[in-house]
């Protein structure tokens, strides 16, 4: 199956190469372009399912929300560690049914959830499409469910389709 050319991955790779060398000299552009064209071709055989992200505005909004949530939950977890809430936190597992099926969306969702302090992605059942979430201080299950469904899953479904 012939795929038409996707410019996004080579452009990102070229940008990363220029950042890594911290220079804009012409030979760096040349090497970077060669690598950026060669690496996607080689990597294609490893993971043949290409992602097609759309809706840049939604993605920027999602990044902004995640940044805010990371800062907020950093403060919350810091308070728990200092023991101002209670001596030991009440850990607990939580099952959340998902609507999203696309593997790229699930991968990004797992990274968002785990990178936010206080929650860790603990597993995903492929048949029932159910996510197991581990929460550091389980107080209100409804809040976590709503946060993940509305704040993260809906924009991800829009982005990855």
């Amino acid at each position: 199956m012939k795929q038409h050319f996707q410019p996004m991955l080579p452009v990102v790779l070229l940008g990363l190469w220029l950042l890594l060398n911290d220079s804009l000299a012409w030979h760096q552009w040349l090497i970077g372009a060669a690598l950026a064209l060669a690496i996607p071709k080689l990597a294609n055989t490893l993971r043949p399912l290409p992602a097609r992200p759309r809706r840049l505005v939604v993605a920027i909004g999602l990044v902004w929300h995640v940044l805010l949530d990371v800062i907020r939950s950093n403060i919350a977890v810091g308070r728990i560690i200092l023991g101002t809430v209670r001596q030991q936190p009440q850990v607990g597992f939580l099952k959340i049914p998902l609507d999203m099926r696309t593997p790229h969306g699930l991968a990004v969702l797992s990274i968002i959830i785990t990178a936010t302090p206080g929650t860790v992605w603990a597993g995903h059942d492929q048949d029932s499409n159910e996510l197991t979430l581990h929460v550091l201080d389980l107080q209100d299950e409804e809040v976590w469910l709503r946060t993940i469904k509305e704040r993260y899953e809906r924009p991800l479904m829009e982005i990855f389709g």
Binding site: V70, V77, G78, I80, I81, T114, A115, L136
Partner: peptide, 26 residues
């Protein structure tokens, strides 16, 4: 520092796994 203190302070692995995320992210 908070993340590392949490790693030392919590009594349960499932609680401890959340602590170093503080140092990793913000």
């Amino acid at each position: 520092l908070l993340g590392s203190i949490g790693l030392l302070r919590f009594n349960n692995f499932y609680a401890r796994i959340h602590a170093p995320t503080l140092a990793n992210t913000l």
